[in-house]
């Protein structure tokens, strides 16, 4: 009788290890960590919690984890849904794994700590202002590269266009629209505001304002993740991330093009 109980307990513990490994890997993939990290953190967590072997297969929108403990294996599959980039979650998940490796956390404590992670979000207006400033700096860099000094109206217009567009993008994301829709609509708004500089002759270099104000739509993180995934051998997740990044770029292009048609301002080419 006691032997069966002990067996049952061991099985429950293994099931819990498998679940935690899968949850760790999923949290990392959902918040924009590269595949190599999602795999290694989950494996190290499983080994630290007492599994003999942890095998993880990552796909673009799902993952499989198998743990082996004294000859018995247990497998689980989870779906991956994109939750948006969040380096705070990635950091917290990794620190949980490190604490488990250093034997500061046991199985239950790891589960508690993972469940307690609340994704950090910066205030929406603050992000919009910072992105506005970022694109204004891009405009200034472009002016400097062309040897133009002392034009401060162009960065100012860029600031206005991209800050408003970023606010719109975050507002739309709040209502759970597809990111492709968000990007297209927000790119339309950004280009429309910058186009006014061209139409009314507000600034000396409206072309730079128009190209700098849409730089907030370049999916830099997915692009870098796509290449680094592929370099490290995760070709399938790398390709799907790369395709998603190009789709986001194309959606933004759609917004830009629509805006240029509406205002009849053809500056890009």
């Amino acid at each position: 009788m006691t032997a069966t109980h002990a067996g049952q307990d061991r099985e429950d513990a293994q099931r819990e290890i498998t679940r935690l490994c899968a949850q760790t890997s999923r949290m990392l993939m959902q918040h924009g960590a590269e595949s190599a990290l999602a795999e290694s953190v989950a494996r190290r967590l499983g080994l630290a919690l007492g599994a003999d072997e942890v095998e993880i297969a990552l796909m673009a929108n799902g993952l499989t984890v198998t743990t082996v403990q004294s000859g018995r294996s247990h497998t689980t599959v989870l779906r991956i849904i994109d939750r948006g980039l969040n380096m705070h979650v990635v950091t917290e998940v990794q620190r949980t794994m490190l604490l488990a490796e250093e034997r500061h956390l046991d199985l239950a404590a790891v589960a508690r700590r993972l469940d307690a992670i609340q994704p950090l979000r910066y205030k929406r207006w603050l992000v919009s202002v910072m992105i506005g400033l970022s694109c204004a700096c891009f405009a200034r860099l472009a002016l400097m590269a062309r040897g133009i000094e002392g034009d401060f109206a162009t960065p100012a217009l860029t600031f206005a266009a991209s800050a408003v567009a970023m606010q719109a993008r975050q507002y739309l994301a709040h209502f759970h629209f597809n990111p492709l829709v968000n990007f297209a609509v927000a790119a339309f708004i950004a280009t429309s505001i910058a186009a006014q500089g061209m139409l009314h002759g507000w600034v000396d270099n409206p072309k730079i304002a128009m190209s700098a104000c849409v730089l907030l739509f370049v999916p830099g993180f997915p692009l870098i993740n796509a290449v680094s995934d592929m370099v490290k051998g995760y070709i399938n997740t790398g390709i799907s991330r790369g395709v998603m990044a190009v789709l986001l770029l194309l959606a933004s292009c759609g917004g830009i093009l629509l805006s240029m048609t509406v205002w009849n301002v053809w500056t890009w080419l």
Binding site: L85, M87, H88, V127, M130, I131, S134, C135
Partner: peptide, 15 residues
């Protein structure tokens, strides 16, 4: 000028 976009986008990534 490059430091500003690094911070701005870091906030989008919720660093």
């Amino acid at each position: 000028l490059a430091a500003v976009p690094a911070v701005g986008f870091a906030m989008v990534f919720n660093v």
